[in-house]
């Protein structure tokens, strides 16, 4: 069905021109909420990219040494220092939550209300555990003397500043997403969307996948670079 509505015989350019010059709606078959969420995410992309560009500029201009991420973010397990262990776990949790969210959207369009509820709840719980691990990671860094304004490693003070700011802003997004997911999940269970359809699950999903997407970039630029 979806394949039929969304695939079109023309090429990409022609189809774009036809859609943009058509009557009433530009994005054919896209509910208002979904259009709005996409545009919001575009705006949010600009926020995160401005953060990352600032990070790049500051790291390129500082004369002070920049710490080795795999040493800073290591975790000691059974007396062995495993670099990036916690981050790896966090990454896998977030990807898992993205997977459950994608399944929830799928269930929504199949009309499986229970499936949607439990999958969204699982996503929210995974998100919550991500935030918990981030809190653990922060407290561990702080206990090792890495603060937002300075650090005891003779490294550039901006290392802590930019790290706490960007991961904190991402963490806020995750927390907001957890609340958003929980609310929508319970409203689905209450049957608020039986008539309107389950577009809202997909819209929530867009937001959640975006949070995961941002983490992909943070993971690469903060922990691996």
């Amino acid at each position: 069905m979806a394949e039929a509505t969304n695939q079109n015989p023309q090429g990409a350019i022609e189809s774009t021109v036809v859609d943009w010059s058509s009557d009433q709606t530009v994005f054919k078959g896209v509910p208002w909420g979904k259009a709005m969420m996409w545009i919001f995410l575009l705006s949010d992309t600009f926020i995160f990219t401005c953060f990352l560009v600032s990070y790049m500029t500051i790291r390129m201009t500082t004369g002070a040494p920049w710490p080795e991420p795999s040493l800073v973010f290591g975790l000691t397990v059974f007396g062995m220092n495993v670099p990036l262990l916690l981050i790896a776990i966090m990454t896998f949790i977030l990807i898992t939550s993205s997977g459950t969210m994608a399944l929830a959207v799928n269930m929504g369009y199949r009309g499986n209300k229970n499936g949607v509820f439990w999958l969204m709840l699982a996503t929210a719980l995974l998100g919550l555990s991500f935030v918990g691990m981030q809190a653990f990671e922060w407290s561990k860094l702080i206990s090792e003397g890495i603060y937002a304004w300075e650090n005891q490693m003779e490294a550039a003070p901006q290392f802590g500043s930019i790290f706490f700011m960007v991961t904190g802003f991402h963490g806020l997004h995750v927390s907001a997403g957890v609340a958003y997911l929980a609310i929508i999940a319970f409203r689905v269970r209450m049957g608020k969307y039986d008539k309107k359809g389950y577009d809202i699950v997909e819209i929530t999903g867009l937001y959640w996948h975006f949070v995961d997407l941002v983490w992909v970039f943070i993971f690469a630029f903060f922990y691996l670079w």
């Binding site: 705006s43 600009f46 003070p157 500043s161």
Partner: peptide, 25 residues
């Protein structure tokens, strides 16, 4: 506006941090 205000938002946050918790952005 939706694409430009984010830059102001980011710089406002960074300057607030510079002011209040002593970061050096």
């Amino acid at each position: 506006g939706l694409l430009a205000f984010p830059a102001l938002f980011v710089s406002a946050i960074m300057m607030l941090l510079d002011k209040w918790i002593g970061t050096s952005f």
